[in-house]
Design a protein around this nucleic acid. Structure first.
Length: 613
RNA sequence: GGCGCUGUAGCUCAGUUGGUUUAGAGCGCCGCCCUGUCACGGCGGAGGUCGAGGGUUCGAGCCCCUUCAGCGUCGCCA
């Protein structure tokens, strides 16, 4: 579903009338260009038959191209053209010549930009015929996505995808213009690189010339852009393709596009300030939306406390409220324990108007909370005739009043209470907050609420193994002056890391990088790498750090998601020209697919698993 | 990888408790008619391995098992 289908894409006057390189052909027009001021001109239109309305003695052909739709009228007085028009069908490709004339009074079509006029056809060439398309091109019908993907070239003819790809182009153009104006160089980095143990699984490319060895496709240009800084390029950007061989998931593609940026001699404030300017400029230029500045900055801990998420949706308030105090003397044992423990939280999510919900609604909310990982949910409602709660008999008026004051609840509101270990309670409450926001229609897709989240911990504990792992990637520098904590209290270290968040989605993240080789080596060690592994996998990088690596930092944005949100779409597949489906297959080309045995032999490979089919 | 939902005409879908003959509808498609439509209109027509395989039953689109595909969701993805 598109929420911002009304977003206007304006096309410049020049491209409207002459978007072909065909010269000289002064009569050539796009199908969205003609207006009353063209009346009297003889023109030529090339396009697809969007629809034919055959009245027997008069035939209307709606001619469509990317720019719009123009009505051509065929009259028996032009016998030859009329005879051709009788044979036209949807998606045939035609060239129509004729005179632009004003439509008869009362027959104008206000739905078309060209609706005041029509072309009285004098001649028509059929440039190509079309089979009957497997799904309608000329109406916004609901079509199974796998069918759309199989015939992607037909889906691309529809206005929705043409609009989305236009917006995406404008975003990329705005970004490039922005960085070009600030002395950044767009530098291409290779796609055939070395496999390095990073976060995700690498795609591998077997080498024919060096059998038994493999290139890896980059998960991101991370190391390469750091090497560009060591190479003294100073300011780099790239619209880069990245590849990760991970398990499938909604809104994930095995290849995706990143804006990649890196700068030397900068600190966190410099990078975030620049990137903030960039997003403001991009939104303004690409979709005409002004982002209020400054973009709010939230500390990581603060984001978790107030919103229960490190990527909070700031389109609405409904902040979480800690209410442990109200339960200090409660007879309810588990609440009393959580209230007393520093490792726990008791969090209230206010549900405006929630007192009107039925018992059954609250039961459903409880199930929802459980699906988020909660042990259970306590609800409390402030109805006009008194309060009600899931633990009615265990609550007293004083506690209920305290809760109402603490959460600024009004009569008619409800509270959803979650108690548990700090991280879990925050997470569940944060998800409930989003759920309530969703139910109340507060997550308006036409609203854009950006924020920065900063001050992430440098390390976290792997919940399964208990081992220390970098919160983001192993190249992130700790906050200035904290290096010594590595030996004493690593979990207290803050990272010079920053996330840009939009409407509850992480759009991108960046950091100031480590440029000290010894410190980098120690981080790799914590990452679980032995000296031998560091040498084998990152030896080239470690060596580079020793040749005068400048301080540097940067950021990367997910362009697919950015474009998706800008277009008001809910799937990144709708802003990618040729996406893979949910199982990462290209159903149009049929990829991945088996290959001839000779190719494998040339590569020195043999299959252990027979390909299907 | 786990769980859930879906699979019937080209498309979007209906199909009752397992039992009316030839499995329906709208759109699309084909033919004929129609000079102001723009979701044109009128009349007529074609079009189905009910995802695949197996089972239960006198009888299966419907129930059971297996399998394939798609979608959604969670794990996973620095």
């Amino acid at each position: 579903m598109r929420a911002t289908s009304s977003t206007n894409i304006t096309t410049s006057a020049a491209s409207r009338t002459h978007w072909s390189t065909t010269v000289p052909d002064l009569g050539r027009r796009s199908c969205g260009a003609l207006t009353a001021s063209d009346v009297g001109a003889t023109v030529q239109l090339d396009g697809w038959v969007n629809r034919r309305r055959d009245h027997g003695g008069l035939i209307f052909i709606d001619l469509r191209d990317r720019d719009g739709i123009t009505q051509a009228v065929f009259d028996p007085s032009q016998a030859e053209a009329f005879a051709v028009a009788e044979t036209l069908r949807n998606e045939d490709v035609v060239r129509v010549r004729g005179l632009v004339r004003r439509r008869p009074a009362g027959t104008e079509n206000p739905k078309l930009s060209t609706g005041e006029v029509e072309v009285a056809a004098e001649g028509v060439d059929v440039l190509n015929r079309s089979l009957v398309p497997p799904f309608p091109i000329n109406v916004e019908a609901d079509v199974d996505e796998s069918l759309r993907l199989k015939y992607r070239y037909l889906d691309l003819r529809r206005p929705r995808l043409q609009h989305n790809l236009t917006v995406r182009h404008k975003i990329l153009k705005a970004i490039r213009d922005f960085f070009d104006a600030r002395d950044f160089l767009e530098i291409e980095t290779p796609c055939l690189i070395k496999s390095t143990p990073e976060g995700a699984r690498d795609f591998l490319v077997p080498s024919r010339l060096h059998q038994g060895t493999f290139y890896a496709l980059p998960q991101s240009p991370q190391i390469l852009k750091q090497l560009l800084m060591i190479g003294g390029l100073g300011r780099y950007m790239q619209i880069a393709r990245c590849f990760r061989d991970e398990d499938t998931r909604a809104d994930r593609q095995p290849e995706f596009t990143q804006l990649d940026v890196e700068m030397s001699f900068v600190d966190e404030d410099a990078v975030t300030a620049l990137m903030e300017e960039c997003i403001v400029y991009t939104w303004r230029t690409a979709i005409g939306v002004e982002i209020p500045q400054p973009v709010p900055r939230l500390a990581h801990a603060e984001a978790l406390r107030r919103y229960g998420s490190d990527k909070p949706d700031l389109r609405f308030e409904l902040e979480l409220v800690d209410v442990a105090e109200a339960f200090a003397g409660t007879p309810i044992k588990f609440l009393q324990e959580h209230a007393a423990s520093d490792a726990s939280r008791i969090v209230a999510v206010r549900y405006p108007g929630g007192a009107a919900l039925s018992r059954r609604d609250f039961d459903e909310l409880t199930e929802t909370a459980k699906s988020f990982g909660a042990g259970g949910l306590i609800w409390l409602s402030y109805a006009a005739d008194g309060w009600k709660a899931s633990i009615q008999k265990l609550l007293d008026d004083a506690t209920v009043d305290k809760l109402q004051t603490a959460t600024s609840s009004q009569t008619g509101d409800a509270l959803l209470l979650v108690a548990g270990p700090r991280d879990l309670a925050s997470d569940v409450a944060g998800k409930l907050r989003l759920h309530v926001g969703e139910r109340l229609g507060l997550r308006d897709p036409e609203k854009f609420a950006f924020c920065w989240v900063v001050g992430f911990p440098l390390f976290e504990r792997d919940p399964e193994t208990g081992a220390l792992t970098p919160t983001h990637h192993p190249f992130t520098s700790p906050a200035p002056g904290q290096e010594a904590l590595l030996d004493t209290d690593p979990l207290s270290m803050r990272a010079q890391h920053y996330d840009l968040v939009l409407n509850g989605s992480e759009l991108g993240s960046g950091s100031i990088r480590i440029h000290d080789p010894e410190f980098q080596r120690r981080i790799f060690e914590i990452f679980g790498l032995s000296d031998a592994e560091i040498e084998a996998r990152f030896g080239f990088f470690m060596e580079a750090l020793r040749y005068g690596a400048p301080p540097h930092g940067g950021m990367a944005w997910g362009i697919d998601r950015l474009a998706m949100l800008a277009c008001g779409e809910t799937s990144i597949r709708d802003v990618i020209a040729f996406p893979k489906n949910q199982t990462f297959r290209d159903v149009m080309m049929d990829a991945p697919s088996s290959v001839p045995v000779d190719l494998l032999r040339d590569l020195g490979l043999a299959l252990k698993t027979k390909p299907p089919g």
